[in-house]
Design a binder for these strands. Sequence first.
DNA 1: TGCCATAATGTACGCGTGTACACTATGGTG
DNA 2: CACCATAGTGTACACGCGTACATTATGGCA
Lengths: 326, 326
Amino acid sequence: MSRVLNNVGPIKSETKEKVLRAAKKIGYVPSALAQQFARKKSGNIGVVLPHVPKVHLFSAYYFSEILSGIGEVAQSNDYNLLLIYRDLSGKRDYSTLFRAQKIDACIMLGSQNIPEERAALAELQKQNYPFCLVNQRFDEEDYCTVDADHIEGSRLVVEHLIHQGYRKIAMLNGPLSYSNSEDRYKGYIAALEQHKLHSTLEYADELYYEGNYSRKSGYETASLLAEKIKQSDIDAVFAANDRMAIGLMNGLKEFNLEAGTDYGLVGYDNSDGSRIVSPPLTTVEVPFYEMGRQAAKLVLQTLENDKSTLSQKSVLQINLIPRESS
Amino acid sequence: MSRVLNNVGPIKSETKEKVLRAAKKIGYVPSALAQQFARKKSGNIGVVLPHVPKVHLFSAYYFSEILSGIGEVAQSNDYNLLLIYRDLSGKRDYSTLFRAQKIDACIMLGSQNIPEERAALAELQKQNYPFCLVNQRFDEEDYCTVDADHIEGSRLVVEHLIHQGYRKIAMLNGPLSYSNSEDRYKGYIAALEQHKLHSTLEYADELYYEGNYSRKSGYETASLLAEKIKQSDIDAVFAANDRMAIGLMNGLKEFNLEAGTDYGLVGYDNSDGSRIVSPPLTTVEVPFYEMGRQAAKLVLQTLENDKSTLSQKSVLQINLIPRESS
DNA sequence: TGCCATAATGTACGCGTGTACACTATGGTG
DNA sequence: CACCATAGTGTACACGCGTACATTATGGCA
């Protein structure tokens, strides 16, 4: 009987027990399929993520942590996690997932500010489908977002470097289509200006580099930086993630430049890698697991309340982890 | 009309087009919920995995690769991926997932040979629910399995070390509840015996160590090995995964012992970490992505054929990657 | 033209829940 | 005792597909 399992309506406790015993006896397990159909809810929350193995720009660590956070909240709320790898062809049709009732809500990982993505998200918003972006903001839009305070994180990095005595601090950023990258740049600039270290023009030209978050791109930047470091035009580098920092570190080793002694180096993410390179990499800890949990909580709340929280924005605090590379 | 979308029965192409146009016009999207219900198939393939963040024994890289492989095959066959984190409490009730019709098939990652797991899998087999184990064999049972040839992989490692001139080769293995660990031990022993390097008794006592696949356990083993390496009782170590190898490498650094010069070191997995430590770690490449694809293909085949392939075992080849640590 | 096989289409029902509504039992109150 | 509110239970239907079966259109052949 549906009523006893779902505790709906008044039931004599005696009858309830009888039903439960009978159900147990015949090994009755309700069909999730039929339930979903009757309730018109799939009970799935979709997690969209880029196809990592081909594009090795994101660290597995990053997704694994966020995903686990989402998974914890989802499971304890009786929701399932539906994994959706973003179409390789670049087509982004999230709203069909909702219309087909495959998912009730959606969490986006590794999203970036490009036209197709903006269009796809706008469509979702328009249809009032609940979704949440993790680690990516769209400032002009009112999307539900969970982010970390990368501006502050980057400020801390630069202040740390300054405190360690470095003065000519370069930045190796990722693509600006990620709000992440933008934020890090803002924090970087803010800290520099606060300490009156550079005029705006200078670092735009001389101290700012852009990779694509891959280790390779960090490695390749080494040849651009080596000479400047040797001539003391640059004495420290802030890389926007650990992968690029590590690539750069290894690249500069080939120029006989050691992080921590010949120049300062700071990464970002506190990935596994940052601990095992030598010297260990100073980095910024981002609470990915917690971000996953928050995102899941937000979309689930939206599902319950039917409204509100739909455009809530959550910003988590970060944490500098000083190690020997700076 | 269900028939035109599913191409069942004979239809006049004219009518077909008319229906399709009408469907497009009103923006019709079939309800996956209703389809699943009518077909009595969820269209989901479940992926069971341990709760990684808490138990940091597995590398994120490992799961991310396998998962992506599964995802590729699943998506191109119109199946969804349902993520299932193994219950932290240790309860393993996979068969309810089938009975509730949440999943049509299941792939197990990070499984190990312990009583609860054996019982849960036996139950699945008994009920004829299709599932596949990745990277874990149960020799006494007839389960569908996708594994890599870790015996051969380990043989290659040891032969490589011998070829490099090392003679007193220790092993740092993982828990033997993983068939992986067992296989690696077999390969290790086989190679040693083949080259008549040790009597069986010796290495059991003096050269064999066991960690738990975590970096920490590798690190902690360093203190046990340092003295022996200095006294030339050991001149090389084969660690059963990269994480332990890296932990050990860092641990031994504190005893002023450098991999590649003071002793030989080989890891296993070809994880991201193995490339970025210094010296770069000799390791074994395991085709995780491909293993994921195979596993997905096997369970999907089983779903189509209704029978057979149910107990198929697939063993993929591995690949030694020599680097500077040996 | 009549007949039949087959192509094409129409139709009705089942799938297993949730739930609105109808109905009965209970117990308290005037 | 009659009446009524409410607790408790029975019942029937909807949900939106797939599909088996019934029905009709088509065209080839005698």
